[in-house]
């Protein structure tokens, strides 16, 4: 049931991301709330589920975006999958770690988009990196960290998962 709720929430979030109700825009760049949500889903439910849900939501995002290629299906799948893998080996992640990981994931996502644009012949290097990719990654990292503080922060086990498995 929780997964269905997650899915419905993510659909609503996808609609909100592009809607006029979304107040968070910095010079035309919006934090990628879908990436942030898929990341936390992947971290909470594991790599496979994270990847699959990321792909579905990425596909919907691609449908409603004017981008020239279906790229979010790939990048969101990767984000959810990677979040699941990272979470397995991380102990007590805090604001800084979540923000840092989301910064990295956003940059990886932007690299994927840039590669697609290279093939399409529309890449504008280094402007794309300076004016879009890096500001986007900073926003994603900051908002991801903030979402963690406000929503997902909870007391975690002080013993790492590996240690508990060994015990």
């Amino acid at each position: 049931m929780k997964i269905v709720l997650w899915f419905i929430s993510l659909i609503a979030l996808t609609a909100l991301q592009g809607s006029v109700l979304n107040p968070v825009v910095v010079k035309g760049i919006r934090p990628d709330f879908i990436l942030i949500a898929v990341y936390f889903f992947g971290a909470g439910y594991g790599d496979v589920r994270g990847g699959l849900l990321g792909a579905v939501i990425g596909f919907i995002m691609d449908v409603i975006s004017a981008g020239p290629v279906y790229i979010n299906i790939f990048t969101k799948f990767f984000a959810g999958y990677l979040a699941g893998i990272i979470d397995r080996g991380v102990q007590n992640p805090g604001f800084a770690l979540h923000a840092g990981l989301l910064f990295m994931l956003s940059l990886i996502q932007s690299t994927g988009i840039l590669i697609a644009y290279v093939f399409l012949g529309t890449v504008q290097f280094p402007d794309d990196l300076i004016y879009v990719a890096i500001p986007q990654a900073v926003l994603d990292g900051l908002f991801g960290g903030l979402v963690y503080l406000l929503v997902f922060r909870r007391k975690r086990d002080t013993v790492s998962r590996w240690e508990s498995v060994l015990k």
Partner: peptide
């Protein structure tokens, strides 16, 4: 009326 903007920062479009 514009009801939505592109959800992806890399594209500039509106609905």
């Amino acid at each position: 009326t514009i009801i939505a903007k592109d959800p992806v920062s890399w594209s500039s479009a509106v609905v």
